[in-house]
Design a protein around this nucleic acid. Structure first.
Lengths: 195, 195
DNA sequence: GATTGATCTGAACGCGCGTTCAGATAAACC
DNA sequence: GGTTTATCTGAACGCGCGTTCAGATCAATC
């Protein structure tokens, strides 16, 4: 078995995904051709098929990797028993994780309609798992008398939409630091559910 | 000048835009071909060019019409002097207007990157005009001592993201009516800015 | 009923698409 | 240094793309 170390595939494979991520986030899945991705990597289009079975799978794998990283990173935190602290942790985690990965977040929200039904279902299930974690915090907080809200699921969707919205306007070079933004949003989140 | 009345153009023109709106919302601008739009209307692709100069302009006009309707519908309301009432009016208006036009809202948020720079700037300016109306309400409310918030612009973006998020999950056939959803969100909005 | 002109068809244009594959290339191993 | 084989090239495939346009169609006008 020749060339098991120093193989280009260790380098080219990840580079294909990186290039695809950047280009799809910028121009949209349908507007990015395999040839453009290949050109970005510095390779001919045919070579891409050493690393992906087809374009659809490439998109799916980008989304899947993103959602798995999200769930893994979240699972690595130890959850505070106190719902108030858990909500703060969730809020800070969400803003920080998502603002660090604008391309992946954009793709995961915008390109869902370009997934096959099976792939769509897989991504949706992971997203739902994540959302449920916030819902659980809210329900626990209500039970403990710390939060007051009409519909945990509605509040979940409202808060996540609000928090993810940071990505649409926040810029590193802007007037506010991410720390400051985090504080402002945390305050809004707390008020939204305050008892 | 023959055929000034009963002309097909009175019918076909709007139908082209309707078909384009539905298809683009469903599949994305890049994935919808002129031939598919024409087929939906029941016409050959060439006939579309009696009504639009090109595909880019079609997209722009769909977005432009949507934003103009938004600003017009909003301008037709008489703004309450009281910031608290103005915020309630804005909140209810936003949810109602946007949930009535899911296709247009989707397109206006998702297809911005497919606009030429000039067209993008035009749409962005209209969006900014709309956002500024909420910011003004917030600033007035703070001045009057009714609201308390750290950054009017940040709160504006947060609230609009939260409210527009309704479109991602609300379904007519669902458990909650739009009236109920409106009430729930209004409560969250009020808490977010409460003094 | 002839004329007019708005509307539409159908074919064509050059181009880029996703994907395949035979053959070239070159690094790792014996 | 010869062999192996992972990796890549370059050409090809059928297809659909946005757009153009000459000519057909046909309702409104005179």
């Amino acid at each position: 078995m020749a060339r098991t170390q120093g193989s280009h595939s260790d380098i080219t494979g990840p580079r294909v995904r990186e290039a695809a991520r950047r280009l799809i986030a910028r121009h949209g899945f349908a507007a990015v051709s395999m040839r453009k991705i290949a050109a970005e990597v510095g390779v001919q289009a045919g070579a891409l098929y050493n690393y992906i079975p087809d374009k659809q799978t490439l998109l799916f794998e980008i989304m899947q990797a993103h959602m798995e990283e999200l769930l893994t990173a979240r699972a690595e935190l130890d959850a505070p028993a106190d719902p108030v602290q858990a909500l703060e942790q969730f809020t800070r985690f969400h803003i920080r994780f998502h603002s660090n990965r604008p391309d992946e977040v954009f793709i995961a929200y915008m390109e869902l309609r370009n997934l096959t039904p099976e792939n769509f279902a897989a991504i949706e299930a992971m997203r739902r798992t994540y959302e449920d974690q916030l819902t659980e915090i809210l329900v626990a907080g209500v039970a403990a008398g710390h939060f007051r809200l009409a519909e945990p699921r509605v509040t979940t969707m409202a808060l996540i939409a609000m928090l993810t919205g940071v990505n649409t306007w926040f810029r590193e070079e802007g007037r506010l630091s991410l720390d400051e933004v985090e504080g402002i949003y945390l305050d809004m989140v707390r008020r939204t559910v305050a008892a």
